[in-house]
Design a protein around this nucleic acid. Structure first.
Lengths: 197, 197
DNA sequence: ATGTTACCGTAACGCTTGTTACCGAGTCTC
DNA sequence: GAGACTCGGTAACAAGCGTTACGGTAACAT
């Protein structure tokens, strides 16, 4: 007999996707084991055989969300032809400009709210967010090599907060924050900071 | 006999404060009627006599939170001596720079996550947020009277998203986002947009 | 003084939750 | 082919949830 680890990982990924779906469509209060199982098309038995408890399921889904976004960001960064284009591309995908990224942003807000009650979820968020911040600071420094460190930090923080904030706002009210307004906002900010491509 | 409506309102306010406390300290998942009653120092009987159900309690707390912030913002705006100072003061109090505003931001994120599952909570958020956005657009237009409309909109959106975003980030990781860094971020943005006082 | 009424705590209801125990079906080993 | 083992579904459990019904108490009106 062989417990193929590939299937286990694939099932864990499918269940994490089910966690995202429930979180995005039904909210944090309805994020139950039964709802996740229904979204994944299986029973609660499979869920509880794959994860020791509900918390472990949420933590895995959270970590997988972060890993996925990190890979996407790294691909964008590698594909860019200049530091400023890399910065813009990376920040652009952070906003909520289409149904998929809107869903992601809803899930992100959900995990953020869930982190209030869960120390490990909080730690996860902080680790991921600090890494994300360092990445953007590095990109800003590369896009403006002659800036002093504190200016790099202040501008990077402004850009991070702006994109993360508009993603949350667009997630809660997509009609009021269409994609083109978010793009114009980003371009206006990059232009004001002197970081236009 | 007289059912004094002042006491009723005061009790509703106290219960709403209890809702905020529970939401900030225990998170959305632990926001139960019993937890609210315990935080308010009463029993669930009083809560359910004051509000028809749990949802009404949350909606009232949400609306009261908005009304309170609106009054505070209007006072700041009225006390400012110039349009640019008004803009800066209003944006500054939106961030999470001290324990009180950090708590408010945690509560804000909690309500935002709860709005995913509740249409009325969503509507409330959209109404409040659109009014907030119009206010900032008006302040930006007053601070830069010669700007075209779309530039006013893009800059106002950038400022709103930035302050709201940094408030959420600071709420989740206060140590990484101290008050002075948020202030520097705001000043750097206002300066870059050409809106310094 | 007494009946009435509003107020609010107590206790219970039905329901949903996370979690556990059990059990059948399929699969690999020898 | 028989047996052991893994997988996953079913059903049950206790606990906690929102909500409801009931009872006692205090204040008012007459």
């Amino acid at each position: 007999m062989s417990p193929p680890p590939a299937d286990r990982a694939a099932q864990g990924e499918a269940l994490s996707r089910a966690v995202w779906d429930v979180l995005a469509q039904q909210g944090l209060e309805k994020l139950t084991v039964r709802a996740v199982a229904a979204a994944a098309g299986c029973t609660t038995g499979l869920v509880m055989h794959r994860f020791p408890n509900r918390r472990a399921l949420l933590l895995h889904a959270r970590q997988l969300l972060h890993d996925t976004t990190r890979q996407r960001v790294e691909a964008l960064e590698a594909a860019a032809t200049s530091p400023r284009e890399a910065l813009r591309a990376v920040l652009r995908q952070c906003m909520a400009t289409d149904p998929e990224t809107i869903t992601w942003s809803v899930v992100w807000v959900g995990f953020l709210a869930a982190a209030v009650a869960d120390a490990e979820l909080t730690d996860m968020h902080r680790r991921n967010n600090r890494a994300w911040r360092q990445r953007v600071e590095r990109l800003v420094a590369a896009a403006a090599p002659d800036w002093p460190v504190d200016q790099v930090g202040a501008v990077a923080l402004g850009l991070i907060a702006m994109t993360e904030g508009v993603a949350a706002l667009a997630a809660a009210d997509p009609a009021a924050y269409p994609a083109d307004q978010q793009e114009r906002m980003l371009d206006a900010a990059l232009s004001a900071y002197g970081l236009s491509c």
